[in-house]
Simulated scan of single mutants.
Amino acid sequence: MTRLLLVNPNTNTRTAAVMAAIAQRAAPSGVTVEGATVATGAPLLDDPAKLAEGALAVQALLAATDLSPFAGVIVAAFGDPGLAESRAAAPVPLTGIAEAAMAEAAAAGRFVIVTTTGLLKPAIDARVAQYGHAPRHAGTFLTEGAAAALMADPARLEAALEATARHALAETRADAIIIGGGPLAAVAEALRPRFPVPIIEPVPAAVRLAVRRAASR
């Protein structure tokens, strides 16, 4: 049995449970996904300061965890907080959900990112460049309204993400759409059958990449 550890970089345990369940559904037979939530930080990483807190919390959790039973670790926030900093010391491969989603989207062609966290747009676009996908990035599109308010109303969140994704697709004619956010995993799953291009779900994408990395060790 192959075990993966999914680390939730915010303090919302419900979000962690949702992401772990989606990851488990995406995992192939013989792979189990276990969730862990950081002990400190914010319940929603919606600005650069909170993202930085999340990075420190991820590093602390991984440093305090015996990773030897696991074949890989998934960092499940779209800014990939703490991923680069933790890789050098980790005994197993680490995979970020933004890293994995962007790789899958770029493989499909030109892609857009749709997200709720407008204050993180510079950080997200920096990740695109860092991972080498800037030539295929057709833009990052933001929902209207505060991220926390949208997250508190699932129906409104789903409607806002769908409307923004449709606008992004009409404007860019992109080949793929990333729904950018770990806590948005359930909405990404719901939107997938409604669009004529692939909806890239970051959590399942990370599972697929983590499994490949585990198999190549």
Rank of each mutant, 00 (worst) to 15 (best):
R3C: 04
R3F: 14
L4Q: 14
L4W: 09
L6C: 00
N8L: 10
N8W: 00
N8A: 14
N8M: 11
N8E: 10
N10M: 07
N10H: 09
T11E: 05
R14Q: 15
A16D: 07
A17C: 04
A21Y: 01
I22E: 12
Q24F: 02
Q24V: 05
A26S: 10
A26P: 01
P28D: 05
P28G: 03
P28L: 10
P28C: 09
P28V: 04
S29I: 11
S29W: 13
G30H: 14
T32K: 13
T32V: 15
T32Q: 14
T32Y: 08
V33D: 01
E34D: 10
A36C: 10
T40N: 12
T40L: 14
A42V: 02
L44K: 00
L44T: 05
L45R: 03
D47F: 13
D47A: 08
A49I: 07
A49M: 12
L51W: 06
L51D: 07
E53Y: 01
A55L: 05
A55H: 09
A55F: 03
A55M: 02
L56Y: 05
V58G: 07
V58D: 01
A60T: 15
A63Q: 12
A63M: 03
A64K: 11
A64L: 13
T65E: 03
D66C: 03
L67E: 06
S68K: 09
P69K: 00
P69I: 01
F70L: 01
A71H: 12
